[in-house]
Every structure is written in structure tokens, then in C-alpha cells.
């Protein structure tokens, strides 16, 4: 493509050429002709350069498409699995907690009822209001109560520990959600780059992702296969014992 300046320059040279042919100046005519063909070659180079640039831009946007394909084809479905697993884990933790409370409450209510009853009788005993028969009965009740207290407090502490452990979901779902947030940011950046490329032929900002090496995988999510990951504590133990642990 020639701009106005190129065109005027060519016209000036053409006029000179006509003049030198008319003047039968063969040497000058030869020089002018070779100069003009050199210009022609340079224009051709410019055009090739322009096409190369366009090709490069197209290839860059193609590479970006590849990245988007990776995001939409694998990472977004993975993110859905991850978020579903978050729902599952929070659901599981809530149920575990509520189930444990369902077991604790009747035990504590019964203990409270029984201790109130015994407390009343004990006060009557202290103020010598209790007959011998009643006292014997109360002694039996106290024995039973102490036995059941041992069992019941054990139930309460076991179930309380279950509740404590169930709270582990917060750490694990937190790690999963952080990963999904990083993915959403990644998608956003890719889309911004795509818009930039579509909007102009400026070279797209480097979208090359940092080397994935050293990225931690975080909690295992059912349905997402992580290469080289173990599936249970037993496998961890086996691996460590194979290493001499």
C-alpha cells in the first residue's frame, strides 16, 4: 500500500525518467529505473512485514483461545465439582453436628431432671425429713445416678469431640473456595485479553501463565483426579513405611 508521500515521490521519479529518456541520457535512465525497482522491492518488504505482524496477532489470539478452551473445557467443570463438594462437605458437617447434639441433649436433660430430683431428696435428708425407707430408696437412686453419670458424661464428651472434628470443613472448603476464586480471576483476565485483541491489533499482553510447578493441589475432591495423589491415610502410611518410616 502506498501513501500520498510515496505516490508524489513516484510521480517525481517518473517525470525525471521521462525527461532522461527524452534527453536520450541512457546512463541516467538506467539509474532511475533501478532506483524505482528498488523502491518497489522495499514496498514489497513492507507489505510482507505487515502480513507477518497480522499473522502473529492472529496466532496470539489463537493461543488465547486455547487458554480459554482449557478453562472452559476442564477447569470450569472442575470448579463445579469443587463447589458441589463444598456443598456436600458443609451439609455433612452440619448433619454430623446436629446428630451429635441430638444425642447429647436427651442425655443432659435426663441428667438434669434426675439431679434435681436427687437434690430435693438430699435436702430433705439433711433436714431429717426423710424416713428410713425413703433414705434407702434415695441411696439406691444415687448409686444408679452415679453409674449413669459415668456413661452419660462419656457420651457427652465423645459427641462433643465429634462436633469439634466436624468443624474441619471450614479449613478444607476454605482452601477449595480459594482455588475457585483464583480460577474466576484467571477467566476474567483471559476475557479482558480477548477483548483487547478483538478491539485492536495491538499485541496482546502476555497471557502466559506462570509455570505451574510448585502449585499446591489442596484438599482431594471426589471426581477430580490429581496425578500422583494418594487416596487415604493408609496409603500415606504405606508410602512412608516404604521409605523406611
Amino acid at each position: 500500500m502506498q501513501d500520498e508521500g510515496d505516490r508524489l515521490e513516484l510521480l517525481a521519479k517518473a517525470k525525471q525518467l521521462v525527461e532522461s529518456i527524452e534527453a536520450k541520457d541512457d546512463a541516467s535512465t538506467g539509474e532511475l529505473l533501478s532506483a524505482m525497482s528498488l523502491d518497489r522491492e522495499q514496498n514489497l518488504f513492507k507489505e510482507v512485514g505487515h502480513l507477518t505482524r497480522q499473522l502473529h496477532d492472529n496466532l496470539s489470539s489463537f493461543a488465547l483461545d486455547e487458554q480459554l478452551i482449557g478453562l472452559t473445557g476442564k477447569e470450569i467443570p472442575d470448579a463445579k465439582e469443587r463447589l458441589n463438594y463444598v456443598i456436600e462437605m458443609t451439609d455433612d458437617a452440619a448433619h454430623k453436628t446436629l446428630n451429635a447434639i441430638d444425642e447429647i441433649l436427651p442425655v443432659t436433660i435426663e441428667m438434669q431432671r434426675k439431679s434435681e430430683e436427687l437434690s430435693k431428696n438430699w435436702s430433705r435428708f439433711l433436714s431429717r425429713d426423710l424416713s428410713l425407707e425413703e433414705f434407702k430408696e434415695m441411696s439406691g437412686e444415687i448409686s444408679k445416678f452415679l453409674d449413669s453419670s459415668c456413661v452419660n458424661t462419656k457420651i457427652v464428651s465423645d459427641k462433643t469431640n465429634e462436633i469439634v472434628l466436624a468443624q474441619g470443613y471450614q479449613d478444607l472448603t476454605g482452601q477449595i473456595i480459594k482455588k475457585v476464586i483464583a480460577l474466576v480471576q484467571n477467566v476474567e483476565e483471559s476475557l479482558v485479553d480477548l477483548i483487547r485483541i478483538a478491539g485492536s491489533h495491538e499485541e496482546a499482553a502476555s497471557t502466559k501463565k506462570e509455570e505451574e510447578k510448585g502449585v499446591l493441589e489442596g484438599p482431594a475432591v471426589p471426581g477430580i483426579v490429581i496425578d500422583g495423589a494418594v487416596n487415604s491415610q493408609d496409603e500415606v502410611d504405606d508410602l512412608l513405611s516404604s521409605l523406611g518410616f
Binding site: 489442596g218 484438599p219 490429581i226 508410602l239 512412608l240
Partner: peptide, 22 residues
């Protein structure tokens, strides 16, 4: 929560005494 074999091995090599997965 990290449970890749290479990580467990890395921890073992670094001198961990026990490894529990969440």
C-alpha cells in the same frame, strides 16, 4: 490436605516424623 505422593516423599526427605491427611 496435600496428598500427592511427591509431596509426601518431599516431606519425608525433609525429615518429617509423621504425616496426617485432612
Amino acid at each position: 490436605a496435600e496428598q500427592k505422593r511427591e509431596q509426601i516423599i518431599e516431606a519425608a526427605q525433609a525429615g518429617v516424623n509423621g504425616y496426617v491427611i485432612k
